[in-house]
Measured scan of single mutants.
Amino acid sequence: TETYKYDDKREAEKAAEEFRRRGITVTVEERNGTWVLESK
């Protein structure tokens, strides 16, 4: 599991889209005002 942090929800979702395009499952969730993207 890799974790990436973003200040902006849009950025996180854009990154998530890129991962999914490569066939990687990711989750995006907000933690304490930071958007956390996790690849499984």
Rank of each mutant, 00 (worst) to 15 (best):
E17I: 06
E13W: 08
D8C: 04
A15M: 10
V36T: 05
D8F: 05
E13S: 03
S39V: 15
R10Y: 12
Y6D: 00
E13M: 12
R10D: 14
G23Q: 02
T34P: 00
A15Y: 04
E30C: 09
E18W: 12
V26E: 00
G33N: 04
W35K: 00
R31V: 12
E18K: 06
K5Y: 15
L37G: 00
G23W: 02
T1K: 11
G23N: 03
K5T: 15
V28Q: 02
A12T: 01
K9D: 02
V26L: 04
E29I: 15
D8E: 06
T25Q: 14
G23E: 02
W35L: 01
D7H: 13
E17R: 06
T3W: 12
K40C: 07
T34F: 15
T34V: 15
V26R: 01
R31G: 03
G33W: 01
R10G: 11
E11F: 04
A12K: 00
K40Y: 14
R31I: 13
E13N: 05
S39E: 10
V36S: 03
S39Q: 13
K40M: 12
V36Y: 14
T27F: 10
V28P: 02
Y4I: 10
V28M: 10
W35A: 01
E29M: 11
Y4P: 05
A12Y: 02
V36R: 03
A16I: 05
G23V: 00
E11K: 09
E18R: 08
T3S: 11
K9R: 12
G33M: 03
K14P: 00
V26Y: 07
E2F: 15
R20Y: 07
K14Q: 10
D8T: 15
N32V: 03
E2K: 12
R20S: 07
D8G: 05
F19W: 09
E13Q: 08
V36H: 08
N32H: 07
T34D: 05
V36A: 03
G23H: 03
I24A: 09
R20N: 08
T25L: 14
G23M: 01
L37N: 01
K14M: 10
R22K: 12
K9I: 09
E2P: 11
L37C: 04
K5W: 15
A16E: 03
T3R: 11
T3G: 09
K5N: 09
E13F: 10
E2L: 14
E11Q: 10
R20G: 06
F19L: 14
D7K: 14
R22I: 08
K9F: 10
R10M: 12
K5L: 14
D7G: 11
L37R: 00
T25M: 14
K40N: 11
K14D: 08
E13L: 12
K5V: 15
V26W: 02
T1Y: 14
D7V: 12
V26S: 02
T27I: 11
K40F: 14
R22E: 07
V36I: 13
K40R: 10
R22A: 11
E17N: 06
Y4K: 09
E17H: 04
T3Q: 11
T1N: 11
L37S: 01
K9Y: 11
E29H: 12
D8S: 15
E18N: 06
N32S: 06
E30A: 06
K5E: 13
R21D: 08
A15F: 04
K5G: 07
E2C: 13
V36Q: 04
R20D: 04
R10E: 15
Y6I: 02
I24T: 04
T1I: 13
R31N: 07
E38Y: 13
K9P: 10
R21H: 07
E38K: 11
V36D: 02
I24K: 07
R21V: 07
V26F: 07
F19P: 00
K5Q: 13
Y4C: 06
E29L: 13
R31H: 10
E11A: 12
F19N: 02
R22H: 09
I24H: 10
D8N: 14
V26P: 01
G33S: 03
Y6E: 01
E17P: 00
R31E: 06
E30V: 06
D7E: 12
R10N: 11
E29Y: 15
R31F: 09
T1Q: 11
Y4S: 05
